[in-house]
Structures are given as structure tokens and as C-alpha cells.
């Protein structure tokens, strides 16, 4: 008798192993091993009861509470939900939150502060993309049209020297797919997620010290150092430029092979590159994880 791998057994019973070599292996174990057989029988019986329980929950109404509904009504009536939102960013979009001032406090429940990503900018111009964020990092100026070539990328910034469009696509880039010049199909299915940016509140003039506030909902938490600080990101891009002389044309706070990573496109004299940096980018070099020709 062998020890039952309950995860594997659950996968088998649930059909997750179909078409894999493990399917036959587990089937053999269940047929030949009394422990596996008993566990499989028990699990199948239990799952029928779980399905019944879940069906009860599914049939139970879960209406939006009246106070929450009222807040959404107010929000929907606000300018934030005015039509034709893509035409131009409006001041304050993304900053508004549901007004909880009238929410009765729950006994013993501390109110969590709103998480907000605030980026004080002390450099150069901030040209704002429609849905993405453009970091005012003048020395690392871009050729903006490149940004629009990435799948799922938000609308490209107007072509202008200076800023680098940055966003958090929520994608998980795969080594092999990048080598092939395409993003992973699985990741590419998340197009609405790129919209999870809040639009910046202002566009700064050169030399302004502007405070751009926005949400990078899909940025992995492991990249907080870079998403929270333009200085940190500037050091990262400097390190990248040292490693790969050229111009960084876009920045995606995403994942690479499952790990938090800054995925950049770089224009170099020899062509365009993917350059993937880890969370330590800019601390002691670019923390390079991967690079590959883009074309």
C-alpha cells in the first residue's frame, strides 16, 4: 500500500488529470491499491454531498445590502460615471471612493485605510496616456508608438520624447512566448484588466512637481518599491540602460514565469528587446531575469 496523495486524487476524481500521464497512473493505483481505492470511494461519496451543499448556497439569494446599493447609486450618478470615459482623462478619476462617511461602524472592526498609490513626481513632463500611466522619466525617453504594439497594452501615449508609458497588465510573461515575440495566450486573455488603472489626476508641465495619484491594481505586491517611487523606477531604468544601451519604451509591472517582474521593451541600436527585471531592479544593477529580441 502506498500513501495516498490526496491532491492528486482530488484532481483525478475531478477530471483535472484527463489526458495526462497521471490519469492512468492514478487509475492504476486506485485499481490496485486498497488505500487509494478506499480514499477514492470516500472522496466520491463526500463530493456528492458537497455538491448538494453548494447547490443550497447557490440558491440562497445574496442581494446587495441597501446601504451599499445606495452608495453605488450615488457613485453611478457622479461625474466619475459620466459617459464617453475614454475621450479624455478627467481630473479626479480614480481617486473617488465610495463615501463611507455614513457607514455605521461595525463594533470592533477597524476601518481599513484606503490603499492608494501616490507618485510624487519631481522630474520632467507627465504626459498622460488614456488608460495607462506615463512616467515622466525624461532621460529615458521613448518612442511612444512602440507601447501600442504590446498585446493588452492600454492606449498608447501621444508620441512625445521623454515619458515612458507604464502600466500593470496583470500578465504573466513566459520565456518561450517572449522568444517567439508574443505574449502567453493565457495572459493575453485578460484585456479588461489593463483598464484597472485609475486615470491620473493631472498632467504636469516640464519642471513641475506634480503629484500623480493612481491605482496599479494589477501590479504584483512584490514590485511595490518600484511602483511607489519614481526615483526607484528611474534607478531601475538607469540600470537597465547600462546593461542594454538604448531607450526603454514601455514598462509593465507584471510577472515573469510567475514571479513579480518589470517587463520592459528597449530600443537598441541592434533592434528591439524584451528586458525583464526582477523586484531588485536598480538596487544593485538591473536584477535581470531575462532578455530576448523583440522582433
Amino acid at each position: 500500500m502506498t500513501t495516498v496523495d490526496h491532491d492528486l486524487l482530488a484532481d483525478y476524481v475531478g477530471g483535472a488529470l484527463e489526458g495526462t500521464p497521471d490519469e492512468a497512473r492514478v487509475a492504476e493505483l486506485i485499481a490496485a491499491d486498497p488505500a487509494w481505492q478506499a480514499a477514492a470511494d470516500e472522496l466520491r461519496g463526500a463530493l456528492a454531498l458537497v455538491s448538494a451543499d453548494l447547490a443550497v448556497l447557490s440558491a440562497t439569494p445574496e442581494p446587495m445590502p441597501a446601504d451599499v446599493a445606495a452608495r453605488f447609486d450615488a457613485l453611478l450618478a457622479s461625474s466619475e460615471f459620466a459617459p464617453v470615459p475614454a475621450a479624455a482623462p478627467r481630473a479626479g478619476v480614480g481617486e473617488r471612493t465610495l463615501d463611507r462617511s455614513d457607514r455605521p461602524s461595525r463594533p470592533g472592526a477597524a476601518r481599513r485605510p484606503r490603499r492608494r498609490w501616490v507618485m510624487p513626481t519631481a522630474v520632467a513632463a507627465g504626459v498622460l496616456a488614456l488608460a495607462g500611466i506615463v512616467l515622466p522619466l525624461g532621460p529615458l525617453g521613448m518612442s511612444a508608438q512602440e507601447a501600442g504594439t504590446m498585446a493588452d497594452a492600454p492606449a498608447a501615449a501621444p508620441a512625445a520624447a521623454g515619458p515612458v508609458p507604464a502600466y500593470a497588465s496583470g500578465s504573466d510573461y513566459l520565456r518561450e512566448s517572449m522568444r517567439e515575440g508574443m505574449r502567453a495566450a493565457a495572459s493575453a486573455k485578460s484585456s479588461p484588466d489593463a483598464e484597472l488603472f485609475s486615470t491620473p489626476t493631472d498632467s504636469a508641465s516640464p519642471g513641475d512637481v506634480a503629484a500623480l495619484s493612481y491605482d496599479l491594481h494589477r501590479a504584483p505586491a512584490g514590485l511595490a518599491r518600484l511602483t511607489a517611487s519614481p526615483d526607484a523606477l528611474a534607478r531601475c531604468l538607469d540600470a537597465v540602460r547600462t546593461a542594454v544601451p538604448g531607450t526603454v519604451t514601455s514598462v509593465d509591472f507584471a510577472r515573469f514565469e510567475g514571479r513579480p517582474a518589470v517587463v520592459m521593451m528597449v530600443d537598441t541600436a541592434s533592434g528591439r528587446l524584451w528586458f525583464v527585471a526582477g523586484p531588485g531592479c536598480g538596487v544593485n544593477g538591473p536584477d535581470e531575469l531575462f532578455r530576448a529580441p523583440r522582433d
Binding site: H6, L9, L43, L47, V50
Partner: peptide
């Protein structure tokens, strides 16, 4: 799809 099947299967087993 296999990932969703796996998540559901393991989730149901835990619920059980």
C-alpha cells in the same frame, strides 16, 4: 482549463 478543474477539485475536497 485543467487549472480550474484542479482548483475546483481540490477546493471541493477541502470543503468535504
Amino acid at each position: 482549463e485543467g487549472t480550474i478543474k484542479s482548483r475546483c477539485s481540490r477546493g471541493r475536497a477541502r470543503l468535504a
